[in-house]
Amino acid sequence: IHDWDGLTDYEIKRSEMLHELGYAVFATDLFGKGVRPTEVVDKKQHTGALYKDREKMRSIMQAGMMKAKELGGNVDNAVAMGYCFGGAAVLELARSGAKVNGFASFHGGLSTPEGQDYKATQGKVLVMHGTADSMITMADFAGLADELEGAGVAHEMVTYGGAPHAFTVFGSDRYDEVADTQSWTLFTGFLEAHTK
């Protein structure tokens, strides 16, 4: 699942990297065809609309899984992953009770909306977070750890010292090569462990 820029070349590159490892990949577009916001105000508007309508967010992700299945993907043997906004969306999918083997969030939003919890979560949760992230704090990270532990959800949560928000985005001023490399290695191991 993409970040707040929409489904761009970044997600396509990551999908290609996974395909090269032998995985079937489907990138779900939560904003809609051709919607690629470039201004912060537009990014906030598109993500904000989905944050306000969690049922719509869930239904789009479920539709993405059904489309992946229609195209020949084995959604009964799947892991969902996302970046930034997409990481928050993946955690929403986890809370929805989706039958997915694992949920991986790279520098994603970690807060749980009021009235929601992880009691229905069926797969393991992997959270990769930058300790220097000024947008999603270590208090948010600790809060999620408490929630997952309290709900009895299998999880692994890792922080990368000095890594800011969006630390995996190639070519950006926030890119942290060490954190990116380590988190990608962790994620690919997670895929091996949670897919058949």
Rank of each mutant, 00 (worst) to 15 (best):
H2L: 03
G6L: 04
T8L: 07
T8G: 10
Y10M: 06
I12A: 14
E20I: 01
Y23G: 09
A24K: 04
V25M: 11
F26E: 07
F26D: 10
T28W: 00
L30R: 06
F31N: 15
G32N: 08
G34Y: 01
G34K: 01
V35S: 02
R36C: 10
R36V: 13
T38Q: 14
V40R: 08
V41D: 15
K44I: 06
Q45D: 11
H46W: 08
T47L: 09
G48S: 00
L50A: 05
D53W: 00
D53N: 14
K56M: 06
K56C: 03
S59H: 06
M65P: 10
M66K: 11
K67F: 04
K69V: 12
K69F: 11
G72D: 12
G73E: 08
G73A: 11
N74C: 09
N74T: 10
V75I: 15
N77T: 14
V79W: 00
V79A: 04
V79I: 05
M81L: 14
G82Q: 04
F85N: 07
G86D: 15
A88Y: 12
A89I: 02
V90I: 04
E92N: 14
L93N: 09
L93R: 09
R95M: 12
R95I: 08
S96F: 00
G97F: 05
G97Q: 11
A98P: 11
A98S: 15
A98T: 11
K99R: 10
V100Q: 08
N101Y: 04
F103S: 04
F103E: 04
F106Q: 07
H107M: 13
G109S: 07
L110P: 06
L110F: 08
S111K: 15
E114T: 12
G115E: 03
Q116S: 10
Q116M: 10
D117F: 06
Y118C: 08
Y118T: 05
K119C: 10
T121S: 12
Q122F: 03
K124Y: 03
K124W: 00
K124D: 10
V125L: 13
V125K: 12
V127N: 09
V127H: 10
H129F: 00
H129W: 03
H129V: 01
H129N: 04
G130F: 00
G130L: 02
T131N: 11
A132C: 03
M135V: 07
M135W: 08
M135Q: 13
T137G: 06
D140C: 06
D140H: 14
G143D: 07
G143V: 01
G143S: 05
D146P: 00
D146N: 08
E147K: 12
E147S: 15
E149C: 07
A151M: 05
G152N: 08
V153K: 05
A154D: 12
M157W: 03
G162E: 07
A163P: 05
A166S: 04
A166V: 01
T168F: 03
V169Q: 06
F170I: 01
F170T: 01
G171M: 03
Y175N: 02
D176G: 06
D176Q: 11
D180Y: 09
T181G: 14
T181R: 15
Q182L: 13
S183D: 09
W184I: 01
T185I: 12
T185K: 13
F187S: 11
T188P: 15
L191C: 15
E192R: 13
A193W: 02
A193G: 15
H194Y: 02
